[in-house]
Design a protein around this nucleic acid. Structure first.
Lengths: 197, 197
DNA sequence: AACGATACCAAGCAAGTGCTTGGTAGGCTA
DNA sequence: TAGCCTACCAAGCACTTGCTTGGTATCGTT
C-alpha cells in the first residue's frame, strides 16, 4: 500500500466540509441541520454525536480559516518590502484564500454580519477592525512614500479594494482555468494603473 | 394648510417600506412576518389584509425597482454618446439607484440568488442576463473604438465593475456627507485611469 | 468472551414559522 | 341610518426548526 498522500480526513472533518459547502451556498441560517445530515447520508440527530451545535460548526470553520489567513498577513506586514509591494502581497494572499478556503470566505462574506450579533462571534468584529487597520495603513504608507497618488481618498479606496477582492468569491470557482494568482494579477493591473503614480 | 409636497403614502406603502428596511438589514428569509408587524405596531395576521404573502412583498419591491432602473439604462443605451461615456453614465445611474432605492438594492444583492430559485422570480435571472449583455457590450465597444485598453479581459473587468458598484450598498449610507454622485466620481477616477488609454 | 469507543438510528419535544379564520371598530357615502 | 370599506385583533393550524434522548451495530483491544 502506497503511503497516503493526505492524512485521510476523519468522519468529523468530512461532515464539517459538507456543512461548509452548504453554508456557503445557501447561507448559515438558511441551511438546516437536516440539510447537512441529508447531504452526508445520515439523520440529523446523528450530527450531534460529532458537534455540540450548528453554531459550533461555523465557529470552527471561521476561526480556523481566520487564524490561517492572519498568519500570512502578519508575515507580509513584518517583511521589509515597500508599502505598495506589501499591498500587492496582501491582495495576492487574499485571492489565494479564496482559492483554498472558498466556502469559508463565502460564509464570512455573507454571514459575518449576522453572526457577529452573537457574543460568541465577537472575534469577527475585532478581526474586521484589524483588517481595516492593516489595509488603510498600507495605503497611507504608500501615499506617504510617493508610490501611490497623493490625492487618494484612503477610506474610500480601502472599501473599493476590500469589496472587490472578497466579493470575487461569488463568481470565482476553484478548479477552473483561472488560478487565484491569475485573477490577482489582472486585478492588480487594473487597480494599480489607476492608483499608482 | 400648505399643499402637500409628497402624495402622502398609503398605509400599504408604509408597511412595504418597513418590510424593505428589514429585508435589507437581515435578509428576506431571516425576516419573519412577525418582525415586520412588530416594526409597524400591528399583529402579523393584519399584514395579510394588505398583502397576499411575504413573497409578494419582495416581489413588488424588486419589480418596481428593476423597472425604474431599466428605464434609465435603456435611455443611456439609446443615447448617441461614445461607449466610454455610456459606461460612465451607467455607473452613475447605478450609484444613484443605491442612493434612491437603498433597501431594494441591498435585497437584490443578498437575496436575488435565493429568490431566483422560485419560478415566480424568474425575471430576476433574465434581468441579470440583460444587465451582463449591456455592460459587456459597452466594454467591448469601448475596446473596439479605442477608448479602452485593447488587452482588457472583458469578462473579468465586467465582474470587477459589477461587483464594485453594487457591493457599495453595504457601506454607503444615504444622507451622509457623500452623495451618490461623489462616490461615482471617485470610483470612475480610480477605475478609468486604470482601464482607459 | 468482555469492554469500550465510534458512528449511527428512531422518535420526539419546544419554539418558531407563514398564513388563515372569524370577528370588531370607526369612518365615508348613498 | 343603512351599507360598505379600511384597518386591524385574537386565536390557532400545519409545518419546520435546532436539539435531546435512549438505544443499536460494528469495530479493535484486552
Amino acid at each position: 500500500m502506497p503511503a497516503a498522500s493526505a492524512p485521510e480526513p476523519s468522519r468529523r472533518d468530512e461532515l464539517l466540509a459538507i456543512a461548509a459547502g452548504l453554508f456557503a451556498e445557501r447561507g448559515f441560517k438558511n441551511t438546516t441541520v437536516r440539510d447537512i445530515a441529508d447531504a452526508a447520508g445520515i439523520l440529523s440527530g446523528s450530527l450531534y454525536h460529532h458537534f455540540d451545535s450548528k453554531e459550533s460548526m461555523v465557529d470552527e470553520l471561521l476561526d480556523t480559516f481566520q487564524t490561517e489567513l492572519w498568519k500570512k498577513y502578519d508575515a507580509i506586514e513584518a517583511s521589509d518590502s515597500t508599502p505598495k509591494a506589501k499591498l500587492e502581497a496582501v491582495v495576492r494572499a487574499s485571492f489565494e484564500a479564496i482559492g483554498e478556503h472558498h466556502s469559508e470566505v463565502a460564509i464570512f462574506q455573507s454571514d459575518a454580519l449576522y453572526l457577529a450579533t452573537f457574543e460568541r462571534f465577537g472575534y469577527l468584529i475585532e478581526r474586521n477592525r484589524k483588517f481595516r487597520t492593516l489595509w488603510t495603513g498600507l495605503l497611507e504608507q504608500g501615499v506617504a512614500s510617493g508610490e501611490l497618488k497623493a490625492d487618494l481618498d484612503v477610506a474610500l479606496v480601502y472599501r473599493f479594494l476590500r469589496d472587490t477582492v472578497w466579493v470575487a468569491v461569488r463568481w470565482y470557482r476553484p478548479g477552473g482555468t483561472l488560478t487565484p494568482a491569475d485573477v490577482a494579477d489582472q486585478y492588480l493591473t487594473i487597480l494599480l494603473e489607476g492608483i499608482s503614480q
